[in-house]
């Protein structure tokens, strides 16, 4: 872990780590439930990502502010209360803002409470760092999560509905791939992205090995 206690310097990596190196979805494989369930369209993915990011940043701030006051014995309970509060806020705000989006998210807004990304950030980062650094890190994680959801939601919406963010791409004769909006489609698209990233990583490694004159191993 790069986050050593008492290291208060905020680097680019504090923010970027959540987006690429420790992406919550593609690297840490956390929060799979909303990742698979609400990414049937890009709009839903964006809504879910934004809601989670808000909860992530706000709860990180609060946890970090109180980090020296919270006794270790009740810290998880306290984190959950804090997280649940912000989830409830998001729930009300979303209902007030758009009923359609709220209906599409269903129970998954309330389920942000148990999204392990948020509890993980509270435990691993916010409880050991100053508020600003925690928030920067949380924002990076939230953005990484949102981008990952958009990767899934975009592909699923393009193939499953022929549109992106509700805008038709292929005209009215497009044949939707029904499987993409079914649960199976979520798993397949996630697997596709993981294969792609793993392959890119291996290729990069292979190239650096060849440069170093190392023997290519299997």
């Amino acid at each position: 872990m790069s986050l050593i206690k008492q290291d208060d310097t905020i680097t680019v990596d504090t923010f970027m780590e959540g987006i690429w190196r420790e992406n919550p979805v593609f690297v840490m494989m956390l929060g799979m439930c909303p990742t698979l369930a609400v990414t049937t369209s890009a709009i839903n993915a964006l809504g879910m990502g934004a809601a989670t990011t808000f909860v992530l940043i706000a709860s990180s701030l609060l946890v970090s502010l109180f980090r020296n006051l919270i006794p270790a014995g009740v810290r998880i309970a306290t984190y959950i209360v804090i997280i649940a509060t912000f989830v409830t806020l998001v729930d009300y705000i979303m209902q007030a803002y758009s009923q359609a989006l709220y209906a599409a998210m269903g129970a998954f807004i309330q389920l942000i409470v148990v999204n392990c990304i948020i509890l993980g950030r509270a435990e691993a980062c916010a409880s050991r760092n100053k508020p600003l650094k925690s928030m920067v890190n949380a924002a990076g994680m939230g953005l990484g999560f949102t981008l990952a959801l958009l990767c899934l939601g975009g592909v699923r919406e393009i193939l499953g509905n022929g549109s992106l963010f509700g805008l038709p791409l292929f005209g009215e004769h497009f044949q939707p791939w029904v499987i993409m909006v079914l649960p199976a489609g979520g798993f397949l698209v996630l697997a596709g992205w993981l294969i792609l990233f793993e392959w890119l990583k291996l290729r990069k490694q292979g190239r650096s090995q060849q440069v170093g004159g190392a023997v290519h191993e299997h």
């Binding site: 791939w177 029904v178 499987i179 079914l182 199976a184």
Partner: peptide
């Protein structure tokens, strides 16, 4: 896969 993707065709 195509049974699930294109049930009509």
């Amino acid at each position: 896969f195509v049974q699930a993707a294109f049930p009509v065709a």
